[in-house]
Amino acid sequence: MTDHDHNHDRTVKPMVDEITDFEVLEIALRELCIEKGVFTAEDHRRMTEFAEQIGPTPAAHLVAKAWLDPEFRTLALAEPMTASKEVGVDWMEPTGFGTPSDFTAFQILADTPTLHNVIVCALCSCYPRPILGNSPEWYRTPNYRRRLVRWPRQVLAEFGLYLPDEISIHVQDSNQKHRFMVMPMQPEATEGWTEDQLVEIITRDCLIGVALPKAGITTNVITDTRPAIHPGAAG
């Protein structure tokens, strides 16, 4: 046996071997709420399993299918909840045990050569969780929520998305009953791609509308949370 007679890929990843106050606080709140009958342990388990299994993959598949199949695109825009079922999301029963807090009517906003859509929840942080997963941190911040509705072009530029003036921007405000996602246009140089290839470039950011899909770009923008700055007040 040599010194290297083991598989490095199977090496256990490091973990935080220390109990943190935040971990303890999360357990304490949960236990006390359960003991007081605010919610049951079963409620919590089911909701946590829901939070663990959701993500943006179904939404990316929906858009890829729509790019590849004009009939499916028509269905997605006319009957988004029916189209969602084809990618495994039932808006009426997203958890499989009754609906969490965010039901809703769902609508898909299609970009055109002269119109760009972007979603926000100016009031709190409503988000199409069943099909897009949990919202990113920046989406929850008052900074994004309050500024996007006033200065969309500038805020999109902060994500690296510079849109020419001839493209109108439609900011769609979500609320507790209505959820939205964006269907961007299929980018150049992706003709002939398979659904799975297309899904790779349809990132969460593209489905929110703060980025455009592009061949070779498969990751979201990393955006630091920052305090609100009035664009008109700068300089």
């Binding site: 973990m15 071997d17 709420c33 409620d43 919590h44 089911r46 969490p100």
Partner: peptide, 25 residues
């Protein structure tokens, strides 16, 4: 400190579950 790469702490999804459970209550 521990060389861990996960972007969020392990208790995050349980917190999400608790917020959803609270919203129901």
């Amino acid at each position: 400190k521990w060389g861990v790469e996960n972007p969020v702490p392990p208790w995050k999804t349980s917190l999400d579950g608790m917020c959803d459970a609270l919203d129901h209550a």
